[in-house]
Structure formats: structure tokens, C-alpha cells
Design a protein around this nucleic acid. Structure first.
Lengths: 186, 186
DNA sequence: CATAAGATACCGTCTAGACGGTTTGTCAAG
DNA sequence: CTTGACAAACCGTCTAGACGGTATCTTATG
């Protein structure tokens, strides 16, 4: 007899809400803040409702992971399509996405979430696989020391963005990006 | 009247044990594995004993953090003393320490622990401060784009070491390090 | 140098609450 | 009228921490 029982059913929307809320909570309170109670409550759904969409907590975290890597994947593919040079193409797309991440305020949550995910051993392994798979796929064009270094530097910048430990102005960012792009061609 | 009551008291050793065990647990089971019960039991101390040395869980985590940054600090100072060139001296010391970290199998735990620590918002803030302080201290010699990039790349490599996502052979590592040292002089 | 007095280093038990998950029930849409 | 989408109550386990007690260590004093 609750309100939620009477409202229009919209499972896909609720599912999305749950993922979004879980991401926000991990941003604000760290990985420990992502509890079934907290997530379901903040999403305006009962715990039973949450567990209907994700049969257990791991499934929720995996869903989060899939969501993130999916977006990343698409952004990278998009960038690669617009790059005529084969050598280092993946690396440049990667740079592009990571740099964009640091500049878009919307994407902030995205980043801290990644840290939270990394603290879960199972998800760390999944990420390892993701990276290894991509390194493998583009071994012909993106395995030079220059490309590797460029991607490492991008990761470091991404980490710095998360921690907000340096504040780097736009000009500096662009200069660094140019230098890394040059590295990717090397 | 337990055995432990009668054994020789050795507070400093017990304290060290507790920190060591906590680090090991976070390595093996992720941040969630670091519970007062697990740590105290694995260290052969009662939970009361643990809470005598560290009045609450946060104090234990802070202790871990202090331990790690302390070691890092000393290693960096040591390296800096042996570097005659002023420009980029801190960056090169940083590179040296981070590269050494990836090569020393003993230091493996060190790394994963860092991830676990980063998932705790309070400790993430402490790390941010650590980085910002050092960047500030050496702003005269280590704030060029080259130095910044070199340190970012080192962080990226460190992340890769944690995830074991790439396996980079020794020659490649040395080549990359040489390139980053060159960057630090730029 | 012996020893009493206090400080320090623990131990073992207990508790309140949080957490992941189960079960049972209710409503609505096709 | 069956099934998918939830709600609500409940359970067992785990966790952080409080607490009171006991054994060892240190230091000051006679």
C-alpha cells in the first residue's frame, strides 16, 4: 500500500537510479559508504527492490564496473575513428578520454568511484583484464615505449585529478597533452 | 592468567607486528579485510590489546599511513643527498623510489596497501596534503612541465605495477626511467 | 639495594548496531 | 491470472568499541 507500489513501474529507470546513487555514495563516503541499505534508501527504493535488480552486492558493483568501462570503451572507439594515423592511435584516444575526464566536472564522480572499485580485489582483477586486453588488442600499434609512457603519464594525471593534489592550469594541461601526443607518435 | 599475560612485555614489537599484519591483510583481502578482530588475531594479540596501542580503528590506519610516508620520506631524502644537480632533484629521487618499489618483491604489499588507504576519504586527504606539501617545498626546482610529467608517469607505472596489468621487462623499465630522468632535467 | 606505588601493557567478555541476504506478501500490468 | 516489480519484516553474522580486570615494568624512596 505504499506510494512506491502505486507509482508507475519503470524498472530500467530504477536500475539506472540505483547505479547512479551507488556511484555518488562511493564518491562522497568512500567504498564503505556503498551499503545495500544506503543505496536503496537514497534511490527511494526498498532493499528488497534493490536486490530484485541486483541479486547481491557483488552484482551491483559489477554493474557499476560494466557501466563505467562501457562508457570508456565507447568514448575511446569514437576518438579512434577520427584519427588517421595508425601508430599510437589507441594511446591518443586514451589520452583524449582521460584528459577530458579531468576537465569535465560531471565526470568527477567517475574518478573517485574508480578508486573505490580498485579497493575490491575482484574488481581490481577485472580492471587488470580490461587493461591487458586492450594492450593486447593494439599491440601492433601501441606497444612502443613512447606509447606506454604516454599512457602511464595519463594515468598519473588522472590520479592527480582525483586527489586534486596539484592544480594545473589549462595552459599547462594542454602543453602536457601535446607532449604526450608527440610521445605516442614516437 | 593466560600465557600472554605472563610473557615478556614488548610493546614496540607488538605495535610493529600489528601494523605489519594490518598491511598484509589489506594486501590479501582488500581494505575490507582489515578488521580489528582479524588484525588482532593474526598478530597474536587480543582485540583489547590492539585497542590499547591504537585507541580506535582510524588510529590504526593513520599509523599505517605514517609508517608508509615515513619510509618514503627517508628514501627520498637519501636519494636527494646523492644528486648534485638542483633542477629536478626531488623528481629524480621520486622516480628512483617508485621504480625501486616495483622491482623489490618485498615492497609489493606496500603498493596494494596504498590503494586500500586511498579508498578511505580521510587518508586520501592526508595523501593529497603530503603530495601538495612536497610539490610546494620544491616548487623552485621541480615545478617545470617536464618534472610534473615525469612524476605523473612514475605514478602511472606504479599503478600498473599494482595491477600487474602490463609485464614490462627490465630493459624496457630502464629505458623508460632514462627517458623520465631526461624529462626531469628539461 | 630492596620494595612499595604507580604506570603501562595487555586479556576476556559484553553489547549495540550495521550489514548482507532471505522470506513472505502486495500490487499492477499484460 | 500469471508474472514482474517491488515492499516490509526479519535473521544470523560480523564489527567497532567499552569495560573491568590482571600481570609486568619502572621509578622513587627508605
Amino acid at each position: 500500500m505504499s506510494i512506491a507500489h502505486h507509482r508507475r513501474k519503470q524498472p530500467e529507470l530504477v536500475r539506472q537510479q540505483l547505479l547512479e546513487v551507488a556511484a555518488r555514495l562511493s564518491l562522497e563516503q568512500g567504498a564503505a559508504g556503498v551499503t545495500l541499505d544506503a543505496v536503496s534508501q537514497a534511490a527511494g527504493v526498498s532493499k528488497g527492490g534493490l536486490l530484485h535488480h541486483f541479486p547481491n552486492k557483488m552484482a551491483l558493483l559489477n554493474g557499476l564496473f560494466d557501466d563505467l568501462t562501457g562508457k570508456m570503451e565507447r568514448a575511446i572507439e569514437e576518438e579512434m575513428r577520427n584519427d588517421p594515423v595508425a601508430h599510437g592511435r589507441f594511446t591518443r584516444a586514451y589520452l583524449s578520454v582521460v584528459f577530458a575526464l579531468g576537465e569535465d566536472p560531471d565526470a568527477q564522480g567517475w574518478q573517485v568511484l574508480t578508486i573505490a572499485l580498485l579497493s575490491e580485489p575482484h574488481l581490481r582483477e577485472r580492471w587488470r583484464l580490461w587493461v591487458a586486453d586492450h594492450a593486447d588488442e593494439f599491440v601492433g600499434t601501441d606497444s612502443s615505449p613512447g606509447c606506454l609512457l604516454a599512457r602511464f603519464a595519463a594515468d598519473g594525471l588522472w590520479l592527480a585529478d582525483i586527489l586534486k593534489s596539484h592544480d594545473i592550469d589549462r595552459a599547462m594541461r594542454q602543453a602536457m597533452r601535446a607532449q604526450l601526443v608527440a610521445l605516442s607518435l614516437q
